[in-house]
Amino acid sequence: MANLFEHMGMEKERLQFSWISSAEAGKFVNVATEVANSVEALGPIDKFVKKID
């Protein structure tokens, strides 16, 4: 799905996958920070956004 998403022009950083056990608090923090940072670097999304006037 990520591949098709990217194929349509979404930046691949916007859809990320991870497997984290409930015991892996450290990994969760790292992944969440990484995801937040990479999305923040891309800025707000303008594709696939429904505009309602």
Binding site: H7, M8, G9, M10, E11, K47
Partner: peptide, 14 residues
């Protein structure tokens, strides 16, 4: 050919 495009170019293509 589409895979080689930039994300924005892909988006405008679709």
């Amino acid at each position: 050919a589409i895979e080689a495009m930039e994300p924005n170019a892909k988006w405008s293509y679709f």
